[in-house]
Computed example of a mutant assay.
Amino acid sequence: MKNETKIEQDLIITKDDVPYRIIAIKNNKFEVVNIYTGEIKLLLTSDLETEYNRSKKAIEAAKRKFQQKNDFFEPTAHWVASFHKENEALSEISIQTAGAIMTLMLYLNIHGDGILMINGEPVTKQDIDDILGVDDKTSKSYLDEAIEYKILSWTRQKIEVPITFGKDKGKRKKISANVYTINPEYICMGTFPNTKTPFTRVFKTKAKKHIEFLSIEARGFLYKLLPKIHFQSHYITNNPNLDLRKDKNYTYFKNIEQKTLFANECLNIYDLTQIAGKSKAVVDRYYLEFEAARIMLKDGMGRKSKFFVNPGLLTRNNFNCEFAVSLEYIFDQTEPSYSEVRKQVVESKKKKSPIVKKKSSTKKKV
Score class of each variant (00 low, 15 high):
residue 13 I to C: 05
residue 17 D to F: 11
residue 26 K to G: 00
residue 27 N to D: 12
residue 29 K to A: 01
residue 31 E to V: 15
residue 32 V to K: 10
residue 35 I to F: 01
residue 51 E to K: 08
residue 51 E to S: 08
residue 54 R to K: 14
residue 70 N to W: 01
residue 82 S to C: 14
residue 85 K to T: 11
residue 90 L to A: 03
residue 92 E to S: 15
residue 116 L to Y: 01
residue 120 G to Y: 07
residue 121 E to D: 06
residue 121 E to P: 00
residue 122 P to C: 02
residue 128 I to C: 05
residue 128 I to Q: 03
residue 132 L to Y: 06
residue 134 V to L: 13
residue 134 V to Y: 05
residue 139 S to W: 07
residue 140 K to A: 13
residue 142 Y to F: 14
residue 145 E to S: 07
residue 147 I to E: 08
residue 153 S to F: 08
residue 153 S to T: 13
residue 161 V to T: 11
residue 167 K to P: 04
residue 168 D to Q: 12
residue 175 I to L: 07
residue 179 V to T: 13
residue 184 P to V: 14
residue 190 G to S: 06
residue 192 F to I: 09
residue 192 F to A: 13
residue 196 K to D: 07
residue 228 K to P: 00
residue 228 K to W: 01
residue 232 Q to M: 10
residue 234 H to D: 08
residue 236 I to N: 03
residue 237 T to C: 02
residue 252 Y to N: 05
residue 256 I to W: 09
residue 267 L to R: 14
residue 281 A to H: 06
residue 289 E to W: 04
residue 291 E to S: 11
residue 294 R to L: 01
residue 302 G to F: 04
residue 309 V to N: 02
residue 316 R to I: 08
residue 318 N to C: 03
residue 319 F to I: 14
residue 325 V to S: 09
residue 325 V to G: 07
residue 339 S to I: 05
residue 341 V to G: 01
residue 342 R to L: 03
residue 346 V to Q: 07
residue 349 K to M: 12
residue 350 K to I: 13
residue 354 P to M: 11
residue 355 I to T: 13
residue 361 S to W: 00
residue 362 T to I: 15
